[in-house]
Design a binder for these strands. Structure first.
Length: 593
DNA sequence: CTTTAGACTTGGAAAAATTTTA
DNA sequence: TAAAATTTTTCCAAGTCTAAAG
């Protein structure tokens, strides 16, 4: 079978000496022992050596014939001012630049960096003409695309060299891939949703901004010539290699390992083991919060209703956010009265809660759910005498909730419910949808549908791809063509059969067989196309990636592949297989989440 | 208790690479 | 063999959650 081959090849070609011995791999007993051992003192590594971040190239001034115009007249800008102008110019045909907040923030920050003379002249953004600069970059892009094969090859080799030099580190004796080894280039901040800081200037990161973390005895990375690091530290209780503070949100950014690394892989595994432990106690926890719906303490009731939402609807915890600093989004604990509507009866259902709010990344969550009567009653109570802008759960926050969860199960937090419910849903859906008689394409449709059920649960949405309609049409054209071919093949078969009927000779018989084969093949191809079309249509606005990468225990998928003879390559690409190497290595077909 | 800092995971869009099609 | 379509990778923002400080 295919998977056996794949597994043994992997075992031979890519030894993974870091995997825990077989005895500890299965069953929760072995794993929990391993977890405790790891988390005891918070030490993450013994040895860490790397080259430091790769700094993005410095700004190259525009050629003299590319000009900026103010109030219709060309104006030569200082280098610093010009650089920031190019950030805006590059975005000219993006929707961002039409937004007032974006424009205001940009202009404010831009003016701060101007020379006094420039400040005197450049007073209004609407008198700035970036179009020539914009065109320059568009052309430059085109030119890059039009490069010859050899030139492109050369560029690729240069990039590979940088990757080779800066893209890896040594961690406890193993060469590991780094996730993001380049500093982020300067530019204009693009928040998501209605972000109050959109358009602000994101400054260039210099070595003087960067803290290096590595082991004392390692070769300490050299800062670029003429520069020095902000600090070099030797902290083995954290996993980052370098960090800096980003100026727009004043938050830390890190350089960390790639998901394929041992460190990340073990953490990932651990995450799913925690979720599996929740499986053992979730019934008890559910009984508990249902009982708490009737508690005398308001705080307990709120906690119980919130936990119910988190469990049933896979809502995020919902930390508090600093008002005015970020887009106005919420999660469970930060829901406000205005985010839900109560319908005693709706569309033949009782006790319906209508959710409508912006969640992470300003993705809208809209859902109508029929809930148990005590939940409904509690919600009415929580909303009583409150304004739309008031907190629904005024006695609750994520810290309180997580403290409570920690008491119910070691390592339990709100997000574990998302992981648990996502993974268990995949497992159940796979069980319900997979037909062993299907061919691989059919099984993959079932897999995608199971995956989709999870994405819908977690509200993982994407905007419909710009080319969706067209590509759907193309597929339909293909299907129609295939149908025609099929019809023709049917006629030909009939003709061949008639001929055989007449002649009864061997040649005619062989021809019948040939036509039958062709017909079969065409039928299969048509079925495959239909499956493709269904899958595509159903996936129009659903993003599968996040759940696949972050919520679904890969062992469920791998076991499913093995059980039904689907090559792992069909569901996980190279990157994903690297990330899930730990799971591919340890999972057999009867793994149960 | 509240606030803040820090570290790490999760998220969709966009860019880049690859494959398919005409 | 170009260009269109699709898949993969990169990007970096935005969450979660813990710990320390006030």
């Amino acid at each position: 079978m295919y998977w056996r081959l794949a597994t043994s090849m992997l075992g031979r070609g890519v030894p993974r000496p870091w995997l825990v011995p077989t005895g500890l791999r299965t069953g929760s007993v072995g794993c929990s022992r391993w977890e405790e051992e790891k988390s005891a003192d918070g030490v993450k590594w013994k040895q860490l050596e790397h080259r430091g971040p790769y700094f993005v190239p410095l700004y190259e001034p525009l050629p003299d014939d590319v000009q900026f115009y103010y109030d219709g007249k060309p104006l030569k800008l200082s280098v610093a001012t010009e650089e920031i102008a190019t950030f805006y110019a590059k975005m000219l045909d993006h929707e961002y630049t039409t937004k007032e907040i974006f424009q205001t923030n940009f202009f404010n920050d831009w003016r701060k960096e101007m020379t006094p003379q420039e400040q005197k002249i450049i007073k209004h953004l609407d008198k700035c003409d970036f179009r020539e600069i914009h065109k320059y970059f568009v052309d430059k892009n085109e030119a890059r695309k039009a490069l010859s094969k050899e030139e492109k090859q050369k560029l690729k080799e240069e990039a590979d060299k940088i990757q080779e030099e800066y893209g890896y580190c040594i961690l406890d004796g193993h060469r590991e891939k780094i996730g993001n080894f380049k500093t982020e280039p300067p530019g204009l901040f693009r928040g998501r949703g209605d972000h109050p800081k959109m358009g602000m200037l994101k400054k260039r990161i210099m070595p003087e901004d960067v803290i290096i973390n590595c082991s004392k005895d390692s070769k300490i990375p050299e800062p670029p010539v003429g520069h020095k690091w902000k600090e070099v530290r030797f902290d083995n209780t954290v996993t980052w290699l370098a960090s800096w503070t980003e100026n727009v949100q004043n938050s830390l950014k890190y350089i960390m390992l790639n998901p394929s690394s041992k460190l990340k892989g073990e953490k990932d595994w651990q995450k799913y083991e925690v979720a599996r432990r929740l499986k053992d106690v979730v019934h008890k926890i559910r009984a508990q919060y249902q009982a708490d719906w009737k508690s005398k303490e308001m705080k307990k009731r709120q906690r119980a209703v919130a936990l119910y939402f988190i469990d049933k609807l896979a809502l995020r915890a919902g930390n508090e956010k600093e008002e005015g600093e970020t887009a106005d989004t919420v999660g469970c604990c930060s829901l406000r009265v205005e985010h839900i509507k109560l319908h005693p009866k709706l569309d033949g259902q009782e006790h319906v809660v209508e959710f409508d709010f912006l969640g992470k990344d300003s993705i809208r969550y809209y859902n109508k759910v029929s809930v148990e009567k005590p939940v409904f009653k509690n919600l009415q109570l929580f909303m009583k005498n409150k304004d739309p802008g008031d907190d629904l759960f005024d006695r609750l926050n994520t810290v309180i909730l997580n403290k409570h969860l920690q008491n119910l199960m070691n390592g339990l937090t709100a997000k574990v419910f998302r992981t648990y419910n996502a993974s268990i849903t995949l497992q159940e859906q796979l069980k319900a949808l997979t037909n062993p008689e299907d061919n691989v394409a059919g099984k993959l449709l079932s897999y995608n549908r199971a995956n989709r059920a999870v994405a819908i649960l977690c509200n993982h949405q994407r905007s419909t791809p710009k080319t969706f309609e067209k590509s759907m049409q193309n597929l339909q054209t293909k299907i129609d063509a295939k149908k025609q071919q099929l019809e023709k093949a049917e006629q030909e078969l009939k003709k061949a059969e008639d001929e055989f009927e007449d002649t009864k000779d061997a040649k005619a018989e062989a021809n019948v067989q040939k036509k039958k084969k062709l017909l079969e093949r065409l039928k299969e191809q048509l079925a495959k196309l239909n499956v493709q079309a269904t899958d595509k249509e159903e996936n129009k606005q659903i993003a599968l990636g996040t759940s696949k990468l972050n919520y679904l225990d890969p062992r469920i998928s791998i076991a499913w592949c093995k059980k039904f003879g689907v090559p792992i390559e069909k569901i996980y690409n190279k990157t994903q297989r690297a990330k899930f190497a730990w799971a591919i290595d340890m999972t057999d077909e009867d793994f149960e989440f």
